[in-house]
């Protein structure tokens, strides 16, 4: 065994070819592992369970034949979204009630890192349960009214259930749905779709596909233009 090793070429000519190839291969391999894990996570979710009264794109509210479609991308952990709801909620309700517009809510989860419990994802999945129980709009208002501070623990599952009951979700199905995070994959899918649609922040409001400023005036003007 001894003396059979090839003499190592002195390092003054830089790293050996084997070293270069070795390092590059190992780094690429690490990247490949990440890619493999990501793909297997994607495959494991399978077909996404969509809440009743919702779609794979979000939660529609209002008359389907309305000429203007308002897409609202929101995150329940986002304070600016809460402010937007307080500022424009009444206007939106009015535009929906008059039949001029319908709203598609996209409760996405991009602020999970601002709570220790992935509150964005849990609240969004719970809002799917609220949609299934037919109380989504009321639930959204309650979630905003009780929005937990950033960098805290978020609301507990019990609190999310209790707010749902306050919104009118009766029956034991709602509690199970929230606790089991039945619509977790739906949330992930909405978040991914929003990213693909170029939405990188919340709230993002679109009217018939065009982003509008987060003001009442801009929203009204865009909806009026669509009539």
């Amino acid at each position: 065994m001894a003396n059979k090793r090839k003499p190592v070429v002195a390092a003054r000519s830089g790293p050996s070819t084997a070293m270069i190839i070795g390092i590059v291969v190992v780094v690429l391999f690490a990247a490949a592992v990440g890619f493999g894990v990501y793909r297997s996570q994607q495959a494991a979710t399978g077909p996404v369970a969509v809440p009743p009264n919702a779609t794979a794109e979000g939660v529609p509210v209002g008359r389907a034949s309305a000429k203007a479609t308002i897409d609202i991308y929101l995150d329940f952990q986002c304070p600016v979204c809460r402010e937007y709801e307080q500022q424009s909620g009444a206007t939106i309700d009015q535009l929906v009630a008059s039949g001029q517009a319908k709203v598609v809510y996209h409760p996405i989860a991009i602020l999970d890192r601002y709570s220790s419990t992935q509150y964005s994802s849990r609240a969004s999945a719970a809002s799917g349960c609220a949609a299934a129980s037919g109380v989504f709009p009321q639930y959204v208002k309650l979630l905003y009214a009780n929005q937990p501070p950033e960098n805290g623990d978020g609301l507990s599952a019990a609190q999310l259930v209790s707010l749902g009951q306050q919104a009118g979700a009766t029956g034991s199905g709602f509690a199970t749905c929230v606790t089991d995070q039945t619509y977790k994959a739906w949330t992930a899918s909405l978040t991914d779709q929003a990213s693909k649609a170029g939405v990188n922040g919340t709230p993002t409001v679109k009217v018939n596909g065009q982003v509008v400023d987060n003001t009442d005036a801009a929203l009204r003007a865009a909806v009026a233009a669509a009539q």
């Binding site: 690429l28 690490a30 990247a31 490949a32 990440g34 890619f35 793909r39």
Partner: peptide, 8 residues
């Protein structure tokens, strides 16, 4: 690139 970058 997205999932490959962190482990690399």
């Amino acid at each position: 690139v997205g999932p490959g970058l962190p482990p690399a």
